[in-house]
Amino acid sequence: MHSWAVFVAIERHPQRAARPHELERIVDAGDQEPTEAIAEIRAIRAAAEAGL
């Protein structure tokens, strides 16, 4: 349930949700080193979680 709440906290704001989607595409494509993208995704999730 908690993961869903974090997901909703991010997705309810289209501008906030756009960046994680872009980062996920970078990771999925495998064309670049994913470390920075993963770290940013984690930071976005942590910020959303802190706001719950």
Rank of each mutant, 00 (worst) to 15 (best):
R12H: 08
R12G: 00
H13N: 15
H13P: 02
H13K: 10
P14I: 06
P14F: 05
Q15S: 07
Q15R: 09
Q15E: 12
Q15H: 11
Q15K: 12
R16K: 01
A17C: 05
A17I: 04
A17V: 03
A18H: 06
R19F: 12
P20H: 05
H21F: 04
H21M: 13
H21A: 13
H21C: 09
E22G: 07
R25V: 04
R25Y: 00
R25W: 02
R25M: 13
I26T: 13
I26W: 05
I26S: 10
I26A: 15
I26E: 15
V27D: 15
V27Q: 13
D28N: 15
A29H: 09
G30Y: 14
D31E: 15
D31I: 12
E33S: 11
P34I: 02
P34H: 04
P34G: 13
T35K: 08
E36N: 10
E36S: 09
A37I: 01
A37M: 09
I38D: 06
I38G: 04
A39N: 14
A39T: 04
A39P: 00
A39D: 08
E40V: 07
I41H: 10
I41W: 13
A43H: 03
I44V: 04
I44D: 01
I44A: 09
I44S: 00
R45I: 02
R45E: 10
A46R: 10
A47E: 06
A48I: 10
E49T: 00
E49C: 00
E49K: 03
E49P: 00
A50G: 12
A50Q: 14
